[in-house]
Design a protein around this nucleic acid. Structure first.
Lengths: 137, 137
DNA sequence: AGAAAAGTGTAGCACAGGCTACAAATGAAG
DNA sequence: CTTCATTTGTAGCCTGTGCTACACTTTTCT
């Protein structure tokens, strides 16, 4: 049985995970879009996340403040080095979780959806275990 | 490769998952505390989640509004039937995810932490696959 | 070039989920 | 029974993440 202190730390970590989740999702999406079309505009992200362009705008503002992207008025969005790094790490982790779920026998559709939510809560240790499992197939 | 529409739906689901996450964590914690000590007070939850009692108060208010708990001023917190159901389901799911991570070879500490974050993003299909994997050991 | 369409920006709103500081009620101990 | 610690409530603040409505650029098309 878990001790009280352990439970406490778990919840704190889940909360802090949440603060970086949107950032990870955004830089990941930006990287995807850049790869697919060369430039990333706010509308693309609005379409991707099914939110208004205003929401995208302000989220991008936070990402810029936090050093992940650069923007200028009416100009497309670009990733900084830190943003690029975060995007790459997220994509990799996402892919591992996705492949892992497939290897576990989950359908493509469920694996795609679940990996999106799960990826942000997977510790390096668990990620390694997942990778190992996939490789052992 | 995932289509655009699929990506869209994935993100929408992750967002809606988030809205129920705290509710699930709370009713689960309330159920735990009720089981351990018979009554659940706001302070217990504040201690558990490492947040102020004010935050607990208002979260409980939302849970009451949504029909998961009942409270009266200065009285302990109780679960409604719906709350009980949600807590039971969450506990079960949590336990399966936890056992699954252990079966995968992850340490107890990491399994405890990660299952806390992961449980809210596991579809019934994936949960079934996890259960099957645990049972096959 | 001028008009229409597409994309961005801004103002102002809502709710969730954090907080501190202070006030009031409740329960336990003297 | 009164005091004191614990617990709960309230006021008021912040940030994040969502929205609509309206204004302004930029791009595209004729």
């Amino acid at each position: 049985m878990a001790t009280k202190k352990q439970r406490v730390n778990r919840h704190s970590r889940v909360r802090s995970d949440h603060r970086t989740e949107l950032a990870e999702d955004y830089v990941e999406a930006i990287a995807d879009i850049l790869e697919a079309s060369g430039t990333c505009r706010a509308v693309d992200l609005a379409q991707q996340f099914q939110v208004s362009h205003v929401t995208v705008n302000r989220t991008i503002g936070r990402l810029e403040r936090d050093g992940y992207v650069t923007t200028a008025p009416y100009a497309p969005i670009e990733l900084t080095k830190a943003g690029r790094r975060l995007a790459d790490a997220s994509q990799q982790r996402h892919e591992i979780v996705f492949q892992f779920l497939l290897a576990l026998g989950v359908s493509e559709a469920a694996a795609a959806t679940d990996s999106e939510g799960i990826e942000h809560h997977v510790s390096p240790e668990t990620l390694a275990a997942m990778r190992k499992f996939v490789d052992s197939r």
